[in-house]
Design a protein around this nucleic acid. Structure first.
Lengths: 338, 338
DNA sequence: GGCGGGGATCGAATCGATTCGACCGTCGCG
DNA sequence: CGCGACGGTCGAATCGATTCGATCCCCGCC
């Protein structure tokens, strides 16, 4: 009984007599052989069937974010049927810059997906380039030789801002995602505003400016969580010249602002309008429905999956920018007539 | 220049002259060699460094569940420093039973973690046993040769039920997690109650009975989401002989019930008490704080990680049952005096 | 009866790194 | 001056499956 015959028996392809096949399978059973070792196959094929997903600087934060989670869901749904597995790779840790995760350097992956594209000078992308791993960059600064998938967040934010302008708002504050790895909190100084290394934050901010609006305050948060939004909301709404509208760069932040407003006894949207970004389904905000810019989350995951497949086929996919859609809810209304 | 020398140069271990090492590294640079191929290393070592995490029947549901997500977070935090990666493996799809995910059969993994242990007759466990993959079973029916990690949910539920009894409640309804893959919705018939294949649902229900309580209604939900809880809450609270307390098998379900109660104009806890399970932090339920049984989520992930490490070391870890803790919030109170 | 063809099976090379034992050169010590 | 020891380098075997080409056998046809 030769090895090659056994291989044929297991793989199912190639010419093989039924009798032989069953003889092989019986012998396998008798010897408690568990079937082909994937490692051998992978080495031979030169493919591991694994797509590494690099999740920002800490998985814990990433997992708390429904946006990331839903995109990941769409991605796995697309990749699963292709026989590809998703390997979660923690990004570099916060404190020491040089320490890149050991997995990133040594894990076998056919393609890497860098979620929310990181900053302009990301060491992760550099590492991937060195290792020669084809990469899909999500929501990042365009790079040569790297597939890109993103949404039209700048345009969406402009549309959302215009919606507020149409309602007569002029004192508009904005609550943003983190600027960089430092993750400061509070009203941003002009100096700080000039150095935003996180692409997504910068683009959404640019969208506001495109509508001709200069926010009265740009409030930076250390993370896109409800509690961070609540903190921002409390700060902005208890200030003397409070804004009539608050534009948030994520729905979770906006939810926090809504909760803070309720806490302070302010009516929405009569006293203050609040808008978010992402288009999440937030049943617990009832009876309010957040005005937001919806991005196609599951579809984004699927499109990333398609880009992965393209890269595996040796092709370089075109950059994809997915459309977003303004969804007016109950949290925005005409400016109060004082 | 021999292959073995090059290997020495890259691995860093073993005796090697500095001059030689730099000569090797220079040559590597010149030839655009990206460093050792992980697949070769893995084959030689017989280890892939990958831990497969099998996430119920659909990733999408799993990801929406903060409990799963937080455990996963704790797990990755433990596994990362050990140089182990987490591979997400979708479980078998709903409709056709025979179809087990191709990844499950063919992915390289040193250890598998079966999240929320599945049902008693789980095809996944059978498959893993056949492949000879050491397995950690989370919240499942005990199995020979399988490491087990769980929480004392039965005891916790008993304690929670006693808390309601102490407050004078007698008409107690319960809202449960799914019974099985069918995922029905509505009040469960005795016949159906007798055949609960999902271990976790059965144990939490048993915890209620251990306190001597027979629920007036056992309301089954198709998934542990806020909207399912809201549907259950509406059904239970608009019935003629509505319960004075509703015991939910998860915090998300309980949140839904709280929202449904608010919607119906019922005061909590004056008109109805609501309790959950898991101990999630739910800022958006404010001003209410859910009475719940807290389980140590991140720690559970860490303990699973330890079990994985034990298995990799060739040892068989003891079954672990983590303690839970009753946390009384503002959503439970004395029974209404009619 | 002989030859051609086709289906089944087998050998051997290959993927890439690791690692053990062997070998070689040099240095130090007696 | 010679021998032993040690640090450095190299060969070759090994992990396990895949796959191409070669071989072999049997059957059918001339």
């Amino acid at each position: 009984m030769s090895v090659s015959t056994a291989s044929l028996a297991f793989s199912g392809s190639g010419p093989i007599a039924d009798a032989t096949r069953s003889r092989v399978l019986d012998a396998a059973q008798a010897l408690a052989y568990a079937g082909p070792n994937p490692l051998g196959r992978q080495l031979r094929r030169g493919r591991s069937g694994i797509v590494g997903v690099i999740m920002g600087d800490a998985l814990r934060r990433a997992f708390r974010d429904p946006v990331a989670v839903q995109v990941l869901d769409g991605l796995t749904s697309t990749l699963g049927p292709l026989g590809l597995g998703v390997l979660l790779v923690p990004g570099p840790h916060d404190p020491s810059q040089p320490a890149v995760d050991p997995l990133l350097e040594s894990a076998a992956m056919d393609v890497a997906v860098q979620m929310w594209g990181g900053t302009t000078d990301d060491p992760v992308l550099e590492m991937l380039r060195r290792r020669g791993t084809p990469t899909v960059l999500v929501e990042g600064t365009p790079q040569p030789d790297v597939a890109a998938v993103g949404i039209d967040d700048q345009g969406g934010m402009t549309e959302l801002t215009r919606h507020l302008l149409d309602l007569g708002h002029t004192r508009i504050a904005t609550v943003t995602l983190p600027f960089d790895r430092d993750r400061s909190e509070g009203a941003a100084t002009p100096a700080r505003l000039a150095r935003i290394s996180w692409e997504i934050t910068r683009r959404r901010l640019a969208g506001v400016r495109d509508a001709g609006v200069t926010p009265t305050v740009v409030y930076e948060t250390p993370a896109s969580l409800v509690e961070n939004g609540a903190a921002a909301g409390r700060a902005l709404l208890s200030a003397p010249d409070r804004p009539t509208a608050i534009l948030c760069q994520s729905d979770l932040l906006a939810s926090g602002v809504v909760l803070a407003a309720r806490e302070l006894g302010l009516r929405i949207p009569q006293d203050v309008s609040v808008a978010g970004f992402d288009g999440l389904d937030l049943p617990w905000l009832a009876p309010d429905v957040l005005t937001s810019v919806a991005q196609p989350l599951a579809r984004k995951g699927a499109v990333i999956g398609e880009a992965v497949a393209e890269l595996l086929a040796g092709r370089t996919p075109e950059p994809r920018v997915l459309p977003v859609e303004l969804r007016v809810g109950t949290t925005t209304g005409p400016v109060p007539t004082t």
